[in-house]
Amino acid sequence: MNIFWLTGDLSHLAAIVILLLKIWKTRSCAGISGKGQLLFALVFTTRYLDLLTSFISLYNTSMKLIYIACSYATVYLIYMKFKATYDGNHDTFRVEFLVVPVGGLSFLINHDFSPLEILCTFSIYLESVAILPQLFMISKTGEAETITTHYLFFLGLYRALYLVNSIWRFYFEGCFDLIAVVAGVVQTILYCDFFYLYITKVLKGKKLSLPA
């Protein structure tokens, strides 16, 4: 494990926990895309099926379980406990336009044509675009709460750190996963516009609002 890998994991964890605590503390999920959170729950479920077949380390297993539990808890809060605060009218991204092509692609391009590997590949492709419903919602309402932008920042930062980790592992360990790297590049590119707004607005104490 290297520093980019560890800080990537911690950044990912920070994002998930920030979102969960924001919803819990404010008793509201206003401004959060429920569809996006459903996609992330699907991402974790399909990627971590290897929990049932292989053991890597205590760290690996615990983090996977925490990610899965937090993502399901978030979905529960949005669609059950604080359903009344869910802003469904603005959460109108058509997720089937992501899930269907991504499903097809994972059948066509994968490392091994086995159920577990296809599902894992599916989760990597899906994760790279799973933020789109949330970004779409922000573009529709034209603004985001500052705490929501912190969530997005850590979620984006995690994948960028993982890319550096991939380069590190390629040079020092000789291992390389093209699928994960390409998906990671796509995922990071999708955050660039947001990163720009986060640095130029939110970090200077302003609210993230888009021009009408």
Binding site: H12, D50, I56, N60, M63, K64, H111, C175, D177, I179
Partner: peptide, 10 residues
């Protein structure tokens, strides 16, 4: 290995 990198990552 090619895809070995992914197996121990999250």
């Amino acid at each position: 290995g090619r895809e070995a990198a992914r197996k121990d990552e999250l």
